[in-house]
Amino acid sequence: MSATEVFFQQVANGLTIGMIYALIALGYTIVYGIVQLINFAHGEVFMVGAYLSLLAYAFFQGLALGVGGPLLLVVFVILFAMLGTAILGFFIERFAYRPLRHAPRLAPLLTAIGVSFVLQNAVMIIAGPSDKSCPSLVPVTKYSFGMVTVTNLQILITLVSVMLMAGLHLFIKNTRTGKAMRALADDREAASLVGINANTVISKAFVIGSALAGAGGVMFGMYYNTINFHDGYMAGLKAFTAAVFGGIGNIPGAMFGGVLLGVLEGLGAGYLASEWKNVFAFFILILVLLFRPSGLFGSRVVKKV
């Protein structure tokens, strides 16, 4: 392969994983934007999503394939995992973070790390410590476009991610809850004064963020065909990097940061060696923190007074 071929191929591969990072990054950024909490258990929610896809696959495989074929199966599995992780997110917020709402900021941060351990170990006990193989759900076909070869799986992951992100964008922009979320991010006390129940809205933010991470988990499994109980840790850190990259608290920033991180990582893997791709990702995190701590798009922390 020539250098140009490597470039385009790695951009295509990077885009796919970048979409998944973006989906996870959104959860970090929505929650941070509203409660200024880094939910370090978020990567584990993603991982649980991948495991739930195995469960859903076992349940729905026959039914979905019988009725409508592999695409219907994908839809079923993703919806099932999203529902499961949404419920998980609801309970995490309700029992781990809400009691600490008025505690010093360090307390919920430590709790987040605790929740992360609990989820990892729970999954290890339930599903076992070894890697589980994940089905692609659809028969994989390769397509060649000039210098680039992509699979239908990559196209599917990109499409589903874009749809979910567009859905989120419309939700935040137009719905009553979406407006309430933005109001809370701007000024929590003023939001209470207009009658917004902060707890309800924060809960919804966790539910939505977790559902997106769950969808990301399913597609991660489809793409890499394997999942392990500690896979959420690295993916979570990467997505966190992506969120910081785009400006934590900034929703378009998280989408862009995720995709860009995926692409840069892909290029790093293509030109250097794939073992270096994690180093590459965190090198970017360090650079961003050093030179542009509020991220590429700035954050919403600074308000006009």
């Binding site: 407006k179 933005r182 991010a185 701007d186 000024d187 003023a190 004064l193 207009v194 919403r300 308000k303």
Partner: peptide
């Protein structure tokens, strides 16, 4: 309802 001191409108909305 209250109009708080310093207006406290939602600036990014």
């Amino acid at each position: 309802t209250q109009v708080p001191e310093g207006r406290r409108i939602f600036p990014h909305l």
